[in-house]
Design a protein around this nucleic acid. Structure first.
Length: 229
DNA sequence: GCGACAG
DNA sequence: ATCTTGTCGC
């Protein structure tokens, strides 16, 4: 899986915001009509006091969720974390691991927002457009927008709205825990995203693809980071 | 000016 | 995100 186009990553915040507003126009909010045989989850782990980050991408069969492939890589990061610009920090390493995948997933799930972003280009939307691949954003907390807490029942959800439009959904994936924030990234509808994420839950708050990716990069960091070994 | 603020 | 032990609650 390779990008269909590229752009510079080491730019100013002003230029980054302009780029986000421009790329936002390439987003496709249509229903995904293809088959879903493989689904991937990607995430990153950071080594404290260092600029080293560990990115990972895992591919699973769908809907069985059997692990098919996993790729991890350690890289140096220079772009700081600033709310609203996460993709400029995590985008490059994630594209790196995704490009090294031998199996091409049909859908991508990222640990962060899709269009539930101030300029509608959260990391899932940004990378989805660059790869022109269906993508879903699954964040643990809110970046923008307002919502009413969904009932405490698995599957319950409520719309996440921002500036008068529905940008995502707040989904209860596990009873008695905080809900997750689901939003469209690219080439998929919110209802489909909710269906797919729900189908990936196995009793934990986070859907398996994201949870496993999270565990993988964390494990990768602990075994490769000398300061903790 | 003040508060909010993915990972 | 990361650093951390025990502890409260379903």
């Amino acid at each position: 899986m390779q990008p269909v186009f590229s752009h510079p990553w080491e730019i100013s915040f002003k230029e980054a915001a302009e780029l986000q507003r421009k790329l936002r126009q390439r987003l496709v909010y249509e229903e995904y009509t293809g088959q879903i045989n493989l689904i991937a989850g990607a995430d990153i782990s950071y080594a404290r006091k260092t600029n080293t980050n560990y990115a990972g991408a895992l591919v699973f069969s769908y809907p069985g969720l059997e692990l098919v492939e996993e790729v991890g890589v350690a890289r140096e990061c220079h772009f700081p974390y600033v709310p609203g610009f996460l993709s400029f920090r995590e985008g490059p390493p994630l594209l790196e691991v995704l490009s090294r995948l031998r199996h091409e997933p049909d859908i991508l799930v990222f640990d962060g927002q899709g269009i539930a972003h101030p300029r509608r280009l959260g990391i899932a939307a940004h990378l989805g457009v660059i790869l022109d691949k269906p993508a879903i954003g699954c964040a643990k907390t809110r970046l923008c927008g307002k919502y009413d807490p969904p009932p405490d029942e698995v599957g319950a959800w409520s719309p996440l709205t921002h500036q008068g439009e529905t940008v995502g959904a707040v989904l209860r994936t596990k009873k008695g825990t905080k809900p997750v924030f689901i939003s469209t990234g690219h080439r998929i509808t919110l209802n489909q995203a909710l269906q797919v994420v729900s189908a990936c839950c196995r009793g934990y708050r986070l859907p398996e693809v994201v949870r496993r990716a999270h565990l993988f990069v964390n494990r990768l960091r602990i075994e490769k980071d000398p300061i903790l070994k």
